[in-house]
Computed example of a mutant assay.
Amino acid sequence: MTQAVTTATALVSVLAEHAAKADAEGVFPHESVQALREAGLFGLLVPTEYGGMGGDLGDLVEVAALLAGGCLSTAMIWAMHCQQTDVVVRHAGERLRTELLPRIAEEGYYLASVTTEPAKGGHLLSASSAIEADETELLVRRSAPVVTGGEHADGFLVTMRAAPDAPPNQVSLIHLHRGQADTRVVRDWNAMGMRATRSVGMELDGATAPHQVVGTPGEFRRVAMDSMIPAGHLAWSACWLGAARDALDALVALSRSRQRPGGLDTRSELVRHRLGRARVDLELASAYLLRARDEVLLRRRTGASMDVRALHMQLDTLKVACSELTFSAVDRLVQLGGTMTGYQRDAAVPLERHFRDLRSASLNYSNDRLLGAIGTLTLLDGAGQLF
């Protein structure tokens, strides 16, 4: 067991302690996030030479699943920060890495992602707002309808069109310190689930230095294919799986306890059947997550290209499959729990919160968009190499 896993295991109860209140009030989970910072987990992916834990995406998957068992909103905030950290580690210049990575490791500097825009929604590889350059700075004026934890971030990684005359697919990724920008919340977050992520709409207006461009200017696609997409899909899927696994474990524990409701009689074939179907959903999600994780880790170890059609088909499939299967599992558990155990907000097992949170999974970078991309690739190579 790694240090990170040991640390995360000890913190699950902290996250669980604050999860219900943060969800009910729709507030950022300050206590839980601070606990992760103080434990050094915000620096999980920061190399040891910069003061971090030196973890890889395998560690990210394992820790994300653990934390999500305590609070899915907190786990997602942390996982998306780690996604941005991975981008900095792999693609920032040495000056920016030297400035930023020690702060992430030592202070828990929180990086938020700004990739959505009103005109394009969540489409990752294009941008509408353009960078404007003067003699020494790059001017950033950006509106984003969804920024997870944006009110509380210390810095942002922002996608922008590379220049006013650049096409929409010529995108740069820019790091912007909060102190370099005026930030304003323009839309509140009053969502069905994932309420504590505080994924508000924001406007950013500031200026940054040229060395704060991450990757080659105008070539964000390379950054996304190598880092942002693999890290994001693996981390999100692990979070969803961890939350659904916690829901199943908690319901099974309740069924074995003296407080067991009558509808959870473990001698019932129907109860066993429904538990079995939920377990099958999670086994399938877990197996595909581990397959994708291993492929990404192998490519990173060997230096193989990540910009491979078959890999991104696999990553898109991972996101769609895990988002659907984990929600399906919890939906089955709600049905099994019934009105009192499955549907009540104050039930002994928080199935109602898990249900609302996991309903967002298919909307978080829309499955419809990903299925369209998968369908387009399927027209090119059919079933592909399945074995």
Rank of each mutant, 00 (worst) to 15 (best):
T98Q: 14
A127R: 10
L138N: 07
V140S: 15
P145D: 09
H91I: 01
Q170F: 04
A196V: 00
R195C: 01
S199H: 04
P210C: 14
P164E: 05
G121N: 10
L125F: 15
E99M: 04
T208V: 15
V140E: 09
G218D: 08
L139D: 09
R103Y: 06
R178S: 09
V146L: 14
G149Y: 02
S172R: 08
A163M: 12
D134F: 05
V147R: 03
E107H: 10
Y110N: 05
I174R: 00
E94M: 08
A162E: 12
A119V: 11
A119H: 05
E117M: 08
E117N: 01
L101K: 04
P164D: 03
T85V: 15
T183I: 15
T98P: 00
R142S: 07
R161I: 11
R97S: 06
E203R: 14
G201L: 07
V88H: 02
S199G: 12
T197W: 02
M160C: 15
A112H: 00
S143R: 11
D154K: 01
P145I: 03
S143G: 10
I174A: 11
A105K: 11
V213D: 02
V171P: 00
L101D: 06
H152I: 01
T98F: 05
L139I: 11
D86R: 12
G122D: 11
D154N: 06
H177Q: 15
P167S: 14
V87H: 01
A181E: 05
Y110D: 10
A207P: 09
V171S: 00
V114T: 06
L111I: 15
P118Q: 10
Q170W: 09
R141Y: 11
S128F: 09
S143M: 09
S129I: 03
V186D: 03
T115S: 13
V186I: 15
E132L: 14
L124V: 13
A163P: 08
V214R: 01
N190L: 14
A207N: 05
E99W: 02
S172T: 13
A163Y: 10
S126M: 12
S199M: 03
R90T: 12
P210I: 15
T183C: 12
T136N: 13
G206K: 05
G218P: 01
L176N: 03
V147N: 00
A196Q: 02
V185T: 13
D188I: 04
V186S: 05
R103I: 06
P164N: 04
V147A: 00
Y110A: 11
R198I: 04
W189Q: 06
G149H: 01
E107S: 10
R142M: 07
G193T: 03
L100T: 01
P102I: 06
S113M: 08
V158I: 15
L173R: 01
D154W: 00
R195Q: 08
S128A: 13
D165M: 09
L204W: 00
Q180Y: 08
Y110C: 06
T216A: 14
G179V: 12
A181D: 02
M160K: 14
R97W: 07
A105P: 10
L157D: 00
R141Q: 13
T136S: 14
S129R: 08
G121H: 08
